[in-house]
Amino acid sequence: MGEVIVITSGKGGVGKTTTSANLGCGLAIAGKSVVLIDADIGLRNLDVVMGLENRIVYDLVDVVEGKCRLKQALIKDKRYPSLFLLAAAQTKDKTAVSPEQMAKLCETLRQEHDYIIIDCPAGIEQGFKNAIAGADKAIVVATPEVSSVRDADRIVGLLEAAEIKNIRLILNRLRPDMIKRGEMMTIDDVVDILAIEVLGLVPDDESIVTATNRGEPAVADNNSRAGQAFRNITQRIMGNDVPFMDLEEAGGLMTWLKKVFRIGS
């Protein structure tokens, strides 16, 4: 029986979709059978981040409304044969699906796949309720900024109220150079405030932008620091104990080069 994990944050733009795509690919690379569900009905994006936008025939709403069979709507990834995407509908709104229908869908999918990863929309309304309905674990993505952490705290409260007990944090877009200068909250600061287990630390990394430009998640790029962070998180999801990466080292050479450049200019 597979695990159903919802990727959520409250605030928009902190990296839910990027995280979903990278963890889905990471788990598939590790040989697991994975279904990614884009629950952001009306604002679908997981398809473009995955580079699968030209392959969508049926979507989540079609499945729920019985317009196609579930298997027909699962888009097979072009790189990893054990990875599938269930796209969101672009022309409907959140009310096209109910929490009960989502829970039933997840229950069906987990019979045949190892991991069901749900990309939750921003906000705490119907779309959020749909996305968490069938989940037994949650990953909260936050960046070290006041607005993101505040919303993450609210989301943790709502997840607990929905009796999702396994809630873990991915701290995204960390800037070790700024943390060092005292101009960004530290990892300990955020963990103190949110009081949930840390699943992963992802440095701010240009390779995420270039990877997304190409529709190829960074987790497959061995030279990407953020990709390495997502590979580590993938291992932790599978229950393997992997040490956190040294974020200092992440900024090491680049920080040094920038310093030299600044002195020189």
Binding site: R150, R154, G182, M184, M185, D189
Partner: peptide, 19 residues
């Protein structure tokens, strides 16, 4: 005061009210 610690203390206060 460094903005990192300003952020933390502002968050702690606003979250007391939120929670």
């Amino acid at each position: 005061q460094k903005s990192g610690s300003v952020a933390k203390s502002r968050l702690q206060l606003v979250l007391i009210q939120d929670r």
